[in-house]
Amino acid sequence: MSPLLDVKDLVVDYPVKGFRKPPFRALQGVSLEVEPGECVGLVGESGSGKTTLGRAVLGLAPVTSGSIGFQGREIGRLGRAERRALAGDLQVVFQDPYTSLNPSLTIDQILTEPLIARKTGKAEARNRVRELLDAVHLPSDAGQRLPREFSGGQRQRVAIARALALDPRLIVCDEPVSALDLSTQARVLDLFQEIQARTGVAYLFISHDLDVVRHLSHRVAVMYRGQIVEWGAAAEVTVRPQHPYTKRLFLAAPVADPVKQERRRAERRRLETMEVSR
């Protein structure tokens, strides 16, 4: 069986302002696949190209070369109309729950948006919105209210509900819990897991936080400077990293335990001095 999402040698260039300046290469030949019902974590620091990869899959970043296969079809360079037809299967949850919801629309209006595109009838859309609010554990009267009346975690639930509206096969999650408080973050991650168990949707889960990715993912890819430097089962990559960059990333994240953290700090400093002396 072919993978749900099959990215091969993907290159994305962003034009640089200025006369005859060479373009900036955000992705330099990235390959990755996501099986149906799987969660693939994508870890990296800012500027590593992880968000660009997600945007390229969604058709929001220009594909310079390489291919993006989705359900056996090439979707790297689709026209706007073909892209729209894909909306039912491929969805997104963005990082910032404050700017990803239009502040002047009610939750009902936001959630019916994808349904309008599908030309769903009014009564049916109303039922669907109620189902969706229920699925993300928001009260059913939430629909009449505006985004600003909700906390960050609740807004992210609305964004998740919007992504679920058309029963997609794959959701690209771009740092969906980074802007949330610790306890909220844990609850939203639980929601992601619960939805996956129920609907069998696959996630491409982008995060800078190794702990978050480890918690949710089956497989993990580590990105560094536009390339995937390590790729494998989550239990392997996030616990016994092989690539030096992944090791550094792993040791840099402080753990919430003063005793262990002291050991890790000493280990990290030893690794750094080793690198410098080399």
Binding site: A85, Q91, F94, Q95, S100, E113, I116, A159, R162
Partner: peptide
């Protein structure tokens, strides 16, 4: 804004996005 991107991913046509 991300909500415009989200609308595009939701499959809304351009005139609709502009209108909404």
């Amino acid at each position: 804004e991300l909500y415009v991107d989200a609308a595009r991913v939701s499959g809304l046509s351009d005139p609709r996005i502009i209108g909404r």
